[in-house]
Write a protein that binds this DNA or RNA. Structure first.
Length: 329
DNA sequence: ACACTATGAGTAA
DNA sequence: TACTCCTAGTGTC
């Protein structure tokens, strides 16, 4: 999936272009017809992200009772935005243009109007390339015809968001949302206080569980996925098999600070850039190709970028874990 | 046409 | 640990 950074970007996009608007909600695919009917015609009143989960709040009127839509993208869900969609200067690279970035968590097709269509979620390169050819048509006809299996469509007068492939998509009461959030672990974008860092450190250092498992446990820390797990551990020089309780305090604090930093970079740029200090040339390569962005992720059998040792691959927490047996001894 | 993969997670066993 | 669900792109025949 889309790890935590993508979900925060999506929530922000809803804040910019949907919150405060009355929306038409439908399920072109039909599998969310019941839920869509509950939300159709309501006002969107809030948009929030916690870890990998997003919550959109709706109400009939400003002071009316609230209903929420909870969405979890799972491993291949994605949102497509089209129409009058703001390119937020604070979340895009210089020039205010998000597109032309290859296999990214976020991709944009720029037509006559900036950012008229983009997708946040699982990589969708080819589909978007196809969409690029159709951009002119898409711009003429608003809203565009749904493409593929669109579970939910949320439509304002000028903007549209299509959701496909979510692992979770349901309408909840406020108390139910609170219960879901209560079960989620710390998210540096929700709480970046010293207290949060302290809690993270205490929890990790109290458990016999391997750190490679703990980082994937969304009730411990939320938003980390398989890419950030591998990269955070490599950057910290930590062996994924180390029990949490055996890690020195400063190392655990370092993991939290680095997660916070990588997450902010991800939200800002829309890509998972987990290498630092690259030359201009290497940085350009990394922007163009996701295989040039990571220290160990997807590099099984290839030489470690620092020491040349073959990168190891094993399954941990039911996912592929990549690491360097020497740098992470 | 078919097999396989993917940034995820719930449930059963 | 294994199976299940969700969708689309890529690779192989």
């Amino acid at each position: 999936m889309p790890e935590g950074h993508s979900v925060h970007r999506i929530a922000r996009q809803f804040t910019l272009n949907f919150v405060g608007h009355r929306v038409a909600v439908s399920s072109p695919q039909g599998r969310f017809a019941h839920g869509a009917a509950l939300l159709d015609g309501l006002l969107m009143t809030d948009s929030q992200a916690v870890g990998k989960q997003m919550f959109l709040e709706f109400a009939a009127e400003e002071d009316a009772p609230r209903l929420w839509l909870r969405v979890h993208l799972g491993i291949y869900g994605a949102w497509d935005f089209a129409g009058d969609i703001t390119a937020d200067a604070t979340t895009t690279s210089a020039g205010g243009r998000m597109g032309q970035t290859g296999m990214l968590g976020i991709e944009t097709v720029v037509g006559e109007h900036e950012d008229s269509l983009h997708s946040i979620g699982a990589p969708r390169r080819t589909r978007l390339r196809m969409a690029e050819q159709e951009t002119e048509q898409a711009l003429e006809a608003f809203p565009p015809e749904p493409v593929g299996q669109v579970r939910v469509r949320i439509l304002t007068d000028t903007a549209v968001a299509d959701l496909r492939g979510p692992t979770a998509c349901e309408v909840l009461e406020p108390e139910e949302v609170a219960a879901v959030i209560a079960r989620l672990g710390l998210d540096p974008l929700v709480d970046d206080s010293q207290a949060a860092e302290n809690r993270f450190t205490d929890v990790i250092r109290s458990k016999p569980t391997r750190i490679g498992m703990l980082l994937m446990d969304q009730s411990v820390v939320s938003g980390i996925g398989n890419v950030y797990r591998a990269e955070l551990l490599y950057r910290a020089g930590v062996n994924p098999h180390t029990p949490g309780k055996n890690l020195p305090e400063d190392v655990v604090r370092g993991l939290w600070k680095d997660w916070s930093r990588l997450l902010r970079i991800g939200v800002q740029t829309g890509i998972m850039m987990t290498m630092d200090g690259l030359s201009n040339e290497d940085h350009a390569k990394a922007l163009a190709n996701r295989d040039d962005r990571h220290w160990v992720y997807r590099r099984a059998g290839l030489p470690c970028r620092r020491c040349g040792t073959h990168i190891a691959l094993e399954i941990m927490a039911a996912r592929k874990l990549y690491w360097c047996p020497v740098c992470q001894a």
